[in-house]
């Protein structure tokens, strides 16, 4: 997945919306910028398949040694797949945040609110301001 093709939440999650057999699916992860800011990650909690997620609401957590950060869903819908091995190989997040580092796939309700998210250029601007 190329970063330019993704949509972004202010809370540093990305989503890639694809069409799978007529339904819209959002693949969700966190950005390289966020991973850098969080420093050495040590643990992650992801939801179970079937969980309803809501835009802007927490769906999981990542932990570094001395901080816990919530993961906020960028879209509305229901979790249909979880990258359940990811917590066991957190280094993947650093090496391939937009590919192997995906966290959940969400069956979107409508467009899942994706249109309200930032595009890549807008997100880059936000990161520049925060960094």
């Amino acid at each position: 997945m190329k970063p330019e093709q993704l949509r972004y939440a202010e809370t540093h999650e990305w989503v890639a919306v694809t069409d799978e057999g007529g339904r819209k699916v959002g693949t969700v992860g966190i950005t390289a910028f966020a991973i850098e800011q969080l420093t050495d990650l040590v643990h992650m909690v992801l939801p179970k398949v079937g969980k309803a997620v809501e835009q802007g609401k927490e769906f999981g957590e990542v932990e570094s040694v001395k901080a816990v950060s919530s993961l906020y869903s960028p879209v509305n819908g229901e979790v249909i797949a979880v990258n359940s091995d990811l917590p066991n190989r957190l280094e993947t997040l650093g090496s391939d945040p937009y590919g192997e580092g995906w966290m959940i796939k969400v069956a979107l309700a409508g467009d899942g609110g994706a249109s309200k998210l930032m595009d890549h250029a807008a997100y880059q601007k936000q990161c520049a301001a925060e960094g």
Partner: peptide, 12 residues
């Protein structure tokens, strides 16, 4: 595993 504790996780 200090992230379990109140000084980091506060009300959670």
């Amino acid at each position: 595993l200090q992230t379990r504790e109140q000084h980091i996780r506060r009300e959670k």
